[in-house]
Write a protein that binds this DNA or RNA. Structure first.
Lengths: 201, 201
DNA sequence: ACCTGAACACCGTTCAAGT
DNA sequence: ACCTGAACACCGTTCAAGT
């Protein structure tokens, strides 16, 4: 035992992050453990502590990648639309569809698998907040006269709302039949909100 | 050891549910364990399985009580208002304040401590859904001409939204300073949504 | 220098054994 | 009949020991 050097630190880090993705998408976020990750990459749990601070640190690094994927997905969705209203609806639907097709990793960010909120490092918190920028930009286009802190408030209110429908729908707490039925809820929330938002312009 | 009969089954159940409440509010939902509950009430973990199916069952029973408390709080909040609009805002604020002052038990329902969604028994799911009734009733008052499934859709969209702001604010993911800053977000979401909702009446 | 495997302090759950 | 305590199969994390 000991001293294998089959892989560099960076290679082990890469393998561990990928293994985590595989495990949570296959078995769910609750099934994740250091022993399982280590087993998946052919090392022992102790080795992970040479590359990561602890399991929470590892999870934050997985989450950072997931958030980048989500951001790319949102950008793709937004360009499909000609009006800001349509773009916001597309953004909401893309947010939900990403969550629905990556439930394990979604849970690692917002659900059962996620570390306690007060443990988030700053670099991670800013990665979450950057998601609001897209929404702020579109809301500002719809109401150029509004002050920027009004726009920031509205963006957080609307996007918090979108997020809530996603989490409740994905944890089956909305009393709707299937996942696809969440989409009319998102459309209703966004369109009704925007219609109120533009009214007081 | 064995055979104490100090307490009836119902008394043990009561003690365990209360101990759980104490533990999660004091140490957080993540700190909950059967051994800790048992210790708190002077029994061993095994005894809990004479009264509960398992830990999830116990948690669902705690959650049912928490939801009843929340429902009572929402009723108290709604009567303070003269208009349906104001009542919905009060409802949203009461929902948030209840969550903020009972974070441990909130987490046991919607957060890290909660059992997997697919494990919810039917009696429990209906307890969650009944929360929407109040919102539906008020939305219907505001738009008597709307069909009932439109109202149901809007109630879920709006309340999902309120819920999302609460969860993001309580887990510190909205980029707002303190907890009190979540309240303007809720007011903005609800008022803007209602203004859009009444416009297309 | 790198990695292991045992150890520590925990989990939820089951159940033979004791009164 | 009631309850315990040991057992089983797990956790995250640390670190002496081996190469």
């Amino acid at each position: 035992m000991a001293r294998r050097s089959d892989h560099s630190r960076d290679e082990i880090r890469e393998m561990a992050l990928n293994a985590t993705k595989t495990i949570v998408e296959r078995d769910g976020a609750a099934a994740l453990s250091t022993r399982k990750i280590a087993n998946e990459i052919g090392y022992t749990a102790g080795s992970l502590y040479l590359v990561f601070e602890n399991l929470d640190d590892l999870i934050f690094q997985v989450n950072a990648r997931t958030l980048s994927e989500l951001a790319a997905e949102l950008d793709r969705a937004a360009v499909r639309s000609s009006t800001p209203e349509a773009a916001l609806v597309e953004l909401g639907l893309a947010y939900f569809r990403f969550a629905a097709s990556n439930l394990g990793r979604w849970d690692l960010i917002f659900g059962r698998g996620s570390p306690a909120a007060n443990a988030s490092p700053d670099w991670y918190r800013s990665r979450v907040l950057v998601l609001f920028n897209r929404v702020e930009k579109l809301l500002a286009e719809l109401a150029p006269a509004r002050r920027s802190n009004e726009v920031a408030l509205a963006a957080r209110a609307l996007w918090g709302g979108v997020h809530g429908i996603c989490t409740l729908a994905l944890t089956d707490k909305l009393g709707i039949a299937g996942l696809s039925d969440a989409e009319p809820l998102l459309t209703t929330l966004i369109e009704t909100f925007l219609s109120g938002w533009m009214q007081h312009n």
